[in-house]
Design a protein around this nucleic acid. Sequence first.
DNA 1: CATGAATGAGCCTTCATTCAT
DNA 2: AATGAATGAAGGCTCATTCAT
Lengths: 188, 188, 188, 188
Amino acid sequence: MPPAPLRKDAARNWERIVAVARDLVDEGTPLQLNDIARRARMGVGTVYRHFPTAEALLEAVATPSLEALAAHGEQALADDDPGRALADFLTRTIEAQVTDAALSTVTAAPTDALPRTTELKRTLSSVGRELLRRARDAEVVRPDLTPEDLVPLMCGIAYAANVHGAPAARVETARRYLTALLEGLYIR
Amino acid sequence: MPPAPLRKDAARNWERIVAVARDLVDEGTPLQLNDIARRARMGVGTVYRHFPTAEALLEAVATPSLEALAAHGEQALADDDPGRALADFLTRTIEAQVTDAALSTVTAAPTDALPRTTELKRTLSSVGRELLRRARDAEVVRPDLTPEDLVPLMCGIAYAANVHGAPAARVETARRYLTALLEGLYIR
Amino acid sequence: MPPAPLRKDAARNWERIVAVARDLVDEGTPLQLNDIARRARMGVGTVYRHFPTAEALLEAVATPSLEALAAHGEQALADDDPGRALADFLTRTIEAQVTDAALSTVTAAPTDALPRTTELKRTLSSVGRELLRRARDAEVVRPDLTPEDLVPLMCGIAYAANVHGAPAARVETARRYLTALLEGLYIR
Amino acid sequence: MPPAPLRKDAARNWERIVAVARDLVDEGTPLQLNDIARRARMGVGTVYRHFPTAEALLEAVATPSLEALAAHGEQALADDDPGRALADFLTRTIEAQVTDAALSTVTAAPTDALPRTTELKRTLSSVGRELLRRARDAEVVRPDLTPEDLVPLMCGIAYAANVHGAPAARVETARRYLTALLEGLYIR
DNA sequence: CATGAATGAGCCTTCATTCAT
DNA sequence: AATGAATGAAGGCTCATTCAT
């Protein structure tokens, strides 16, 4: 998972850094490169060599989740039922966002530090675009919904689930909110 | 609008501080009391005297919006049509949140710096609770929606509208998102 | 106890300030005029009018103790037994210093803020000088002890009692230390 | 004298900081880390890296004196004459305290910032305890004197010598006071 | 006389980033 | 490549003192 042309020890460092950062992200601590160096028991310089900014590191942390999401997206594209395909994809997305704090930040950020991130976000975006197109063609989603709305709406749902107190129920809450969004709060 | 027992000059300063803070909030700058003192051309101590923390100041900035919202809430309670009443209230809420950056922060914060804020948030919360109760009794909203969901959902919508790029269209986008949430993304 | 030519309300303020300061001294809080004004529920200006500096206030707080000490000094001067007279006086002094935190500071200070303080310190100093002279004449104290040593030694004993952990036993400890000083640590 | 695993340049800085602090201590100026950074012509961060608090720095300044004292203590333990041994040790202690302003503060402080300080204080304390025990066994000191009294009494003597005074004569004064304490002010 | 708002110097501390070793 | 010491701008907060009201 570290970039290919890397000496073995350098690769080991790369992994250690990302692992430490992952832990920090999970416990909600903001990433500080000095701090990470200390915890990973290496010099700051080493961390900076691998990740010029905290954003770059955060993206590296988020990458596996983004890749998994992209993979699920490909599968969704294979689904015959356009409504189900889109719903599945959105569900996965939400679950990932709520589960992995790195994701929401990276997803909502307007610019990226790593090319790989841009690539993955682009992939996800076009998968979403395609799934939405099909769903619209099948007339299962409201016509005023544009591809540009998907990311914001997912980020919004994830944000909502985080505002809601109970951290333990977060995934469950997020699922409920997504269902509500898909089906509508109002009964018709 | 400054707290009642305040000398005229002190009240003037209070206003200046809040005005400067309002500008900063509007341009998206985080509030720093030192910075505000400089811009308001007064000593730091003066700012600290009026607002012991940046949170307190932010809440003071948000108060008018919160009050307006509360007033609208009271009106909504007078509406006969439970569905429309709730929808109106939520619409106002969203519009306010998107229009006033201070609001979303204050609303999402788990604790308050000013008693007035707590009071207003409590009012809004109970208005929402009542409107939701009526709507549920009239069976116009999905039954799994609880009063605790309203604030998170509104914050989520506002957040979504902000993630979506175009700042100019933000209110419009937020309205669209709210409609989508109310009616559902999916057509049934 | 407030200076004579003072309007009744001003005198009341003077008393309140000193009372508040006394409480603070007793609980070991350093005197801050702003703080005192708040606790005494009056403007800072009022406090400053009465006491231009924290030192002046501290001396006002210490004055009663100094006066009591001076009174005891006069009594000691009436005692026939020079050794007992000096020992009594020193005992009183130590007890006062340890009991009243204001005293040790004021006593050790090289300069005074209030004329009254200077006057009292001078009185005490000459009482001590006289008691010491008599004791020396009676050859009950070591001849190398000068009047200038009395204040430092008493301050030292008080300080020692304060360094010693147990605050509850402070008076007792101070008495022990004084006895030790008078009789000598070493047995001859 | 800087802690062992330190790069040469870092060690140089460590020395500079301690040297500057030593000067300040000697001239009675309270230690302020920013101030020290300025005088040592280095960034504040450097000072903070080496000494997280002013207390830590002060203890570093005091360490040599403490070590010298501890060494003398070991020598005193080798002395056959219990009375002389204790008196010598106390004399050294007093001289050090009066000579080095850092010492009295560090000695009187109830808690330490550096482990080394704790260690040294413990050593000194147990040396004192042992010397006192021997002196008591030999019945040369008053029986009510406990090991816990030694530190307070020495601090008290040092304080007394500093209260009034010709700074030049301070060591001489302190010696006189110690003698007085040992032999008693009163002639028997 | 009393009030208490205003002042702002001054201290503390953190942290992103650079660069000598 | 790795290290980690050094940097210093930046922000936070307090408090003694003044002075308009």
